[in-house]
Design a protein around this nucleic acid. Structure first.
Lengths: 199, 199
DNA sequence: ATTGTATTTTAATCATAGTTCAATCATACT
DNA sequence: AGTATGATTGAACTATGATTAAAATACAAT
């Protein structure tokens, strides 16, 4: 029994870090090969232990998927707050957001590509709602940019999907590309600016 | 035994059409849910028969994936030829290509997203090579556009990936969107023109 | 009507990977 | 040293879905 509260905290922290590692590793593999194509064996192997150990940190594989999505959405929310505070105008907020997101991707957060694979319908809906909220916020910044003159008049929703699509597709090819995520992200942001530039 | 050559042809045509239907249905499901998430049962059900019947038209599930990819690449090649003949300058060729591709997507061709799922390494390499050829051609048109003045100076490879990424991501959200593929495609092409516009 | 080939189905088999559970190992605490 | 709890493993179990083989059906040709 662990009674010393200091030690207890250290242990819990350790456990949290490991849970975090499991989620991160799983997210990376889910992004790369998809949920169904990645086996718990692979995830465990990367972490240096065996698949049954994963069950100590997470209920089951599907729960693992859900947790990675929750983690991503939390990070997206964080990126949103960052963008909202740092960004000067609509365009700036969008670019800030993309940069945060890219950093987040690098840290292996899930791409929310396979929401239908979540077996629990309530959880599935929860994710869908949060994700559509993110899309709405992006469109909102674009609308804001149109109003403040930093972005040319356009369809905010479609323009947002265009721009984010380019980004979301990145993990599919970046691994086998010579350029780094940072370089590509930076370049993509410059293309976004041009795509949305006014007048 | 079928001896009348007219009938024989009709039968073969029928068989080809069914094979085509199997590939098309499979491609659509692979695009929507991914290779591993789609079962042969689902594919068969949509076609109105049972999963074992599929084995009459294709060797196995993995071969089915390969065939859909081959079919897509053939369509991409076709779109390339179209673009090359119809396009006046670099930018125009790229836009023509995208429009053809979009039409192709509508007809449910595979998105070449899960090349690693092809178990035969020779076939996997074959697909990879053809796909990278497609990417090179896209970059080539952009370079051509830079040279002929229809496109602003930029990194042809990255600009191409940006633009195509936006497109490739479409099938992930278009189904639950109010706008039609045609509308969105048209709008996206206008965004491409702006993204690459010179001076 | 009968035959032969094309097509499809039913039932059985096989393979993979997720899940469970009891046993083991590590280690902080007394 | 001994013990309780946390962490991990190995082996067994299970479920799903791909694959195979034999049987059944459809239908053109004679």
């Amino acid at each position: 029994m662990v009674k010393n509260p200091v030690w207890k905290k250290a242990q819990e922290l350790q456990a949290e870090l490991k849970t975090e590692a499991v989620l991160s590793e799983a997210a990376e593999l889910f992004n790369l090969k998809g949920y169904h194509a990645t086996s718990l064996n692979e995830v465990a192997e990367r972490l240096g232990f065996t698949k049954t150990a994963i069950y100590y940190y997470v209920k089951n594989k599907n729960d693992l998927l859900y947790q990675t999505y929750i983690r991503s959405l939390d990070e997206i929310d964080q990126a949103t707050v960052d963008a909202e505070t740092k960004g000067k105008d609509g365009l700036d907020k969008l670019c800030q957001y993309v940069l945060s997101e890219a950093f987040v991707h690098k840290e292996a957060s899930a791409l929310l590509q396979e929401i239908e694979a979540i077996s629990d319908s309530r959880r599935r809906e929860e994710i869908k709602i949060r994700l559509s909220g993110a899309n709405r916020r992006i469109a909102g910044w674009i609308q804001e940019g149109i109003n403040d003159g930093s972005i040319a008049p356009c369809d905010p929703d479609l323009a947002g999907r265009f721009v984010m699509g380019a980004f979301n597709w990145m993990p599919r090819w970046i691994a086998s590309h010579e350029k780094s995520i940072e370089e590509v992200t930076e370049y993509f942001v410059s293309l976004i600016r041009k795509t949305l530039a006014p007048g």
